[in-house]
């Protein structure tokens, strides 16, 4: 990507994020946008975001692909890996080539080799008052370091994510961080459940099902989590969602407008 083209994309991304933050926004959609920006703007093939829940356990809240999500899950399962270390130390962790670090995270590295999708990982903390509340992770298929400028940008995007999570509801009511995280994580579960419903109903893969869900929410101006809940409780049928994907407008009136 040419320098000026990337700069333009970058400014557009930050303007879009800033717009999102002043409106009544959907934190899951914001985090989803953020990992998307990371994969397009930075020298990364995929990105994922982990947040700590109320029991201090990390959970995946956004990922650009099922492969990226799998990478996060492998670390959670192995209870080791760059993203976990980044969260625990609240400092960035860069691994240019996972093949060089078999002893640092033996279980995780063995699992990654089996999957074979990614070779390098760069983990950036979501920091708040010196502590980490989660981690943003960039994955690349090819080994190698991430350029310094990309790391700085990635950290800026991670900071936007932190602000986004903190702001979402604090704007309206003075609530603590954990509640926001908990609600975001629960929304994530609802979205996974809804992806399953759509995958079965419309006979498609999970990535495609997520795409359908996202487009529908965007076109209907509904929160992703609200659409997910309506899908799981079967209040909205697959055809309406498919119509949204084909570009015809959905009929959002039954599901309540965004913002309560």
């Amino acid at each position: 990507m040419g320098g000026s083209e990337r700069e333009q994309q970058l400014s557009r991304a930050f303007v879009a994020l800033a717009d999102t933050l002043v409106a009544d926004y959907d934190v899951i959609a914001l985090l989803d946008q953020l990992v998307g920006h990371c994969a397009t703007l930075l020298d990364a093939d995929a990105a994922g975001l982990l947040l700590a829940d109320s029991r201090r356990e990390l959970r995946v809240v956004a990922a650009t692909s099922e492969d990226a999500e799998l990478m996060e899950l492998l670390q959670l399962q192995a209870d080791e890996g760059p993203c976990l270390e980044c969260y625990r130390t609240a400092a960035p962790v860069s691994v240019a080539d996972l093949a060089d670090t078999p002893t640092r995270w033996p279980v995780f590295c063995a699992a990654v080799e089996d999957v074979g999708a990614f070779r390098s990982v760069h983990a950036l903390p979501l920091r708040l008052r010196g502590e980490a509340i989660g981690a943003l992770n960039l994955f690349r298929a090819a080994p190698g370091p991430l350029p310094g400028a990309d790391l700085a940008l990635g950290q800026a995007l991670a900071d936007v994510a932190t602000i986004g999570i903190l702001q979402e509801r604090a704007i309206r009511r003075g609530e603590v961080l954990t509640e926001q995280l908990q609600v975001a994580l629960n929304s994530r579960v609802a979205i996974e459940q809804a992806k399953g419903v759509l995958a079965q109903l419309l006979d498609m893969g999970m990535d495609e099902a997520f795409d359908v869900l996202r487009r529908y929410a965007r076109q209907a101006n509904l929160r992703l989590a609200d659409v997910a809940r309506a899908v799981v409780s079967r209040e909205v049928d697959g055809d309406a969602l498919l119509a949204a994907r084909r570009g015809r407008g959905p009929q959002p009136s039954e599901h309540g407008r965004r913002g309560r």
Binding site: D53, E57, R59, V60, E69, L73, L76, V189, E192, Q193, A194, K195, G196, V197, L198, A199, Q200, L201, M206, V232
Partner: peptide, 22 residues
């Protein structure tokens, strides 16, 4: 249960397959 995307995704698929609740 709390963590795995596959469990939630499969729950969604099975609820359609059997026409039951989550």
């Amino acid at each position: 249960l709390g963590h795995r995307a596959e469990v939630h995704q499969a729950t969604g698929m099975v609820l359609v397959q059997l026409a039951v609740s989550a």
